[in-house]
Amino acid sequence: MAVRRSAVLISAGLLLAGVPVASAQAAPAATATVSVLHGVPGATVDVYANGKKLLTNFKPGTLTDPLKLPEGEYDLKVTAAGKTAALIQANDVAVPGGANVTVVAHLNAGGKPVLTPFVNDTSKLAAGQARLTVRHTAAAPAVDVRAGGKPVFTGLTNPKQAKADLPAGTVTADVVLAGTSTVALGPADVNLKEGTNTIVYAWGSASANNLKLAVQTVSGLHGNPSGVPGGTGGQAASQQLPVWPAAAAAVLMLVLIGGGTAAVRARS
């Protein structure tokens, strides 16, 4: 499976780069759970960390399986497949021990490729609660998302994120133009599953009419899990849209209305 091969390549690359790993002779280092999302349309790429190639022929829309990495700082570079010149580069990207991080290669608001690491919220949820996280990683304008007629996420722009803990169950959501009450799409029914953080990424370009949706789910956020929740990921595809209909509506709205460089740091 391509995603799993990518995870293996990342692990092997870190070993080649001299990243410390736990052994019987050394105290284990604190680790982080890391996933990588490719959100730059039309570019099959290679990914490097600390000068070593980690991912080869990484295709747009791919979200790697989560894996454990030692905490520390990483120099990241993305190149066109088979090339060495950097399309995107970020040095000293902090990967904190114990955190759950998704690194996203995407377009900024002006259509320039950038890297943005996001820290995924894995804090415990109360009984009967679910978490929604929306990340704007597309070259597209701002939107507001409402639930039950009340704003939940407002003025969401690239590369910002918004999140809310809500009662599990079905709520009615719609999408409006940022700062207005003008409904662009909806309302739509949203099914929120207890004890999960559903993370939705809008990626691509509105002006190029190639916006797409990627969905990541972090589960096990209620009770007392034995470790940091890992989450799940996969190809951004139409069959994922029912996971969160409001997010799908947001992406469709961005396509309808068309179209700052991202800070390279963990966004919590």
Rank of each mutant, 00 (worst) to 15 (best):
V3F: 13
V3N: 13
L9D: 15
S11Q: 14
S11V: 09
G13V: 07
L15G: 14
L16H: 14
V19F: 07
V19P: 04
V19D: 09
A24R: 13
A24T: 14
A24P: 07
Q25M: 13
A26Q: 09
A27C: 08
A30K: 12
H38P: 00
G39L: 06
G42Q: 10
G42T: 09
T44G: 04
D46I: 00
V47R: 00
Y48R: 00
A49S: 08
A49K: 03
N50H: 07
G51T: 04
K53A: 11
K53N: 13
K53L: 11
T56M: 11
N57K: 10
T62G: 04
T62C: 05
L63A: 05
D65T: 08
P66L: 01
L69F: 03
P70I: 03
E71P: 02
E73G: 12
E73W: 13
D75I: 07
A80V: 10
K83Q: 14
A85V: 07
Q89I: 06
V93L: 06
A94M: 06
V95D: 00
V103I: 15
V103S: 05
V104D: 01
A105I: 02
L107D: 02
N108W: 07
P113N: 05
L115M: 11
T116L: 01
P117A: 06
F118P: 00
F118R: 04
V119P: 10
N120V: 08
L125K: 03
R131H: 11
L132I: 12
T133F: 02
T133P: 02
T133G: 03
V134F: 14
T137E: 12
A138E: 04
A139E: 07
A139Y: 03
A147M: 11
G148E: 06
L156M: 10
N158T: 13
N158P: 03
P159Q: 12
P159Y: 13
A164C: 09
D165S: 14
L166F: 06
L166M: 08
G169V: 05
T172I: 07
A173T: 09
A173C: 12
A173Q: 04
V176G: 05
A178H: 04
T180F: 05
A184L: 15
L185M: 10
G186V: 02
D189M: 05
V190L: 07
N191D: 15
L192G: 04
L192S: 04
L192T: 02
E194D: 15
T198L: 11
T198Y: 01
I199C: 06
V200S: 13
G204M: 07
A208S: 10
N209M: 12
N209H: 13
N209E: 14
L211K: 00
Q216H: 08
T217G: 00
T217I: 08
V218R: 02
S219R: 00
L221I: 03
L221K: 01
H222M: 12
P225V: 07
G227R: 09
P229D: 09
G230M: 14
G230H: 09
G230L: 13
G230S: 13
A236Q: 04
Q240I: 12
Q240F: 13
W244A: 14
W244D: 15
W244L: 15
A246E: 04
A247S: 03
A250Y: 12
L252W: 05
L254Q: 05
V255E: 15
G260E: 06
T261Q: 10
A262W: 01
A262R: 03
V264N: 01
A266F: 01
R267Q: 15
